[in-house]
Write a protein that binds this DNA or RNA. Structure first.
Length: 271
DNA sequence: AGGGTGACCTGTCGGC
DNA sequence: TGCCGACAGGTCACCC
């Protein structure tokens, strides 16, 4: 479910409301991808100071330490003063003085991990190799170009890998490549500076537009207040195999790259 | 060091 | 209707 826009929309939907809240209790359901790394009860009494985002991670800054929250493929967060009783897929629940926070994640590829700080090895292992943030000044065109230059694999797979630029997942990689006129199979190292500039711009605009649209709700994504997104209505190629390109009417094609689907227009997107 | 592959887990959908 | 395989928004450990 969640790529950068969905994570950012989630963050925006509860960050202000949870800021300053004191933790009253923490309960874990079935195991998530990684263990919490601390006793749940040890978090009680701490305060949630702020909620930040790095790549696809939510970072809850506590009065002491931090919680890294990843939504995996199927995770979603809820935050409300009253929530219905926990269901089978609710695997992390935190009562606070300002409401209840809950992570629902059927596939359990998500995680909630405690770290003492960002230099804690636990945090470094998850955050240490992440690439540039696409929606900030951190996303430098020259660094992007040089990052792509040293990669032999396809541009689509380099985008997904997240060590050059973060946050671009399977939907937005296909979309950004469409908007920049680049085939997903094109070798990353072969992109000229001019084409890299177009891709750089497309990544920024597609992600920013998706945040404005509340993210993409393909099956079940919703933000922490239960609102779904509607960027799926603006999608040009993702999930549209066999349909007509919105620009040139050619038939959108689907291929597999690294066991993931890619979508592109064979006419609008050149190798 | 980079690239390719399997693994993690549950739900849904299409085809027979 | 039922069963079975394919696939789904992510990313890590493991092999060359």
């Amino acid at each position: 479910m969640p790529e950068l826009p969905e994570v950012e929309v989630t963050r925006l939907s509860f960050a202000d409301r949870i800021a300053g809240a004191r933790i009253l209790s923490v309960d874990m359901g079935k195991p998530l991808r990684w263990p919490l790394q601390c006793l749940p009860s040890s978090l009680v009494g701490r305060t949630v100071v702020a909620v930040r985002r790095r790549g696809k991670y939510l970072i809850l800054d506590l009065s002491e330490g931090l919680l890294l929250v990843h939504l995996g493929m199927s995770g979603s967060v809820s935050f409300a003063s009253h929530l219905p009783p926990a269901g089978v897929h609710d695997h992390f629940a935190m009562r606070t003085s300002q409401g209840q926070l809950r992570l629902n994640d059927p596939r359990r590829f998500g995680a909630v991990v405690y770290a003492r700080g960002e230099d804690d090895p636990v945090a470094q292992k998850l955050l240490g190799k992440l690439g540039m943030e696409p929606l900030t000044d951190d996303f430098d065109l020259r660094l992007f170009h040089s990052g792509l230059k040293r990669r032999k694999s396809s541009i689509k797979q380099v985008l997904l890998a997240g060590d050059v630029v973060v946050g671009v997942g399977n939907i937005y990689a296909s979309e950004a490549l469409f908007h920049s006129g680049i085939r997903p199979t094109t070798r990353a190292s072969s992109l000229s500076l001019a084409r890299t500039r177009r891709l750089h711009q497309a990544i920024r605009s597609v992600l920013a537009q998706a945040v404005l649209a509340g993210g993409s709700t393909l099956r079940d994504f919703s933000d922490a207040q239960g609102a779904g997104g509607h960027f799926q209505l603006e999608v040009m190629v993702y999930g549209r195999a066999g349909q007509g390109c919105g620009v040139c009417k050619s038939t959108i094609r689907a291929i597999r790259q690294g066991q993931r689907s890619s979508f592109f227009c064979p006419v609008c997107q050149k190798a």
